[in-house]
Design a protein around this nucleic acid. Structure first.
Length: 201
DNA sequence: AAACGGATTGGCT
DNA sequence: GCCAATCCGTTTC
């Protein structure tokens, strides 16, 4: 049920990004548990990926997390306000990460409503990487957390999407990555209302 | 100690 | 649906 360390050691970031669709992401913030089904992801793969923070083997205090062995979280602040949550994968020294861009709320909707200050009937409550993180209560304090621990983890509840239900399209907001911006490394569940806005395929 | 810039969001037309 | 505000951790001087 709970995904174990071995799952995160897979060295194919795009495989994981696709495989993570349908998995449940849980957080436990001081006993307050919330969870949602992952319905949109993006793969960031290693030092050759111009869209990755680890492009060109860039190592700073912040990106150091990406180089660790898979199975931990990488949370960083975007635009000064949004906490973007990534799953670090692959072996130590190979900086792969999967950005979680949207979830479908499954547990603790009332808590999410409070965190987002909007009714759970609104799709945007957890649509988009910043919103999904906020709904789950993820902030910078979650950076570097063990994903097999008790604060944040993933579970497999047997939800599986057929290839015909999944779209692989270019990533969002990475125009600066030049030719790598065209790679179809964004995966989403077609027709799911929580998938974030940029829907063009 | 200061400047930078962004894996976005949501408010406005 | 489009456009532009925005903020602080990170990086660099």
């Amino acid at each position: 049920m709970k995904l174990q360390l071995s799952y995160y050691l897979n060295r194919d970031a795009t495989f994981l990004a696709r495989d993570l669709l349908g998995k449940l992401l849980y957080t436990n913030a001081n006993g307050v548990v919330t969870a949602g089904v992952i319905v949109e992801t993006e793969a960031y793969s290693g030092i050759w990926d111009k869209a990755s923070h680890a492009y060109g083997s860039r190592r700073t205090t912040r990106t150091e997390t990406l180089y660790a062995q898979g199975g931990i979280s990488y949370v960083y602040l975007c635009y000064g306000i949004h906490h973007l949550f990534n799953i670090v994968s692959s072996i130590e020294g190979e900086p792969h990460a999967i950005l979680i861009r949207a979830i479908e709320p499954m547990l603790g909707q009332g808590i999410m409503e409070h965190r987002r200050n909007m009714p759970a009937t609104e799709a945007r409550i957890s649509s988009g990487p910043g919103c999904a993180s906020r709904a789950l209560g993820i902030d910078l304090s979650y950076n570097g957390k063990d994903l097999t621990g008790e604060e944040i983890w993933l579970e497999d509840h047997g939800i599986h999407y057929a290839d015909s239900e999944v779209a692989a399209v270019p990533r969002v907001g990475v125009a600066y990555a030049k030719e790598d911006a065209l790679l179809p490394w964004r995966f989403l569940v077609k027709g799911n209302k929580f998938v974030s806005k940029p829907n063009k395929a």
